[in-house]
Amino acid sequence: MNPGADGSPAPAGVPSLGPPPIGLGGAALTADLSGALWWPARALMAVADLHLEKGSAFARKGALLPPYDTAATLHRLREVILRLQPRIVVCLGDSFHDTDGPNRLDSGDAAALTELMIGRHWVWIAGNHDPEIPAGLGGNVSKEYRVDAITFRHEALLMTKPGEVSGHFHPKAAVRFRGKRLSGRCFVSDARRLVLPAFGAYTGGLNVHDPAIAGLFPHGFTAWLIGPSKVYAFPGERLAG
């Protein structure tokens, strides 16, 4: 049941130490198990599509989903921030499920969020669900954020120079193996642009072969699929639709 329990070595092709690197715009980035993007050289961490207060947004429409998604998402965010110790945190848009989201934050969650922002350069990138972030939330609001040759924005632009990092599409990938279909969230990149998985607790996903995503990578792509305790790199051709 445990690979390696019988003493066999780790499978070849998958590094036994740390997640596989993603090269983009001359920077060495890593796909973190949590779904965050980590840029060690700049101590910069990026997450996409938190969709905070999605539960309460649904409740407003009559579906009384457990209101704990914000707490769960912030908890995971806190875990990775404590682990990686970023100086800069970039939230790539759709951080809130709707513009009223920040007003629905309960005091405990608001305090937790504020605490995460202390001592860090926090960037809120505006998304389509949350085009306006209220000033009271703190941090810096922007449509785009540039560091070296990397540009962070919410949704990929069809025509753009290499080095774009974006979110919006909630990519997921599926591998067919031994008659089973194994799927999970993933990062997608072709070394010219990179799309991050959705970080939020209640975020659904779109298969990487859907034209909305595949169309961004006309010459093929690699997906970094997030497994239970490792991240796996698979070429696009190996993935199921």
């Binding site: 499978p11 092709g13 998958v14 193996f177 031994r178 497994g227 239970p228 796996y232």
Partner: peptide, 21 residues
């Protein structure tokens, strides 16, 4: 049948290994 239970990770590892091979 492949395996039961918590074999998801094992399967992923094998798929990756096969790819490498």
């Amino acid at each position: 049948e492949a395996v039961g239970g918590a074999a998801f990770e094992a399967l992923l590892d094998e798929a990756a290994e096969e790819l490498a091979a």
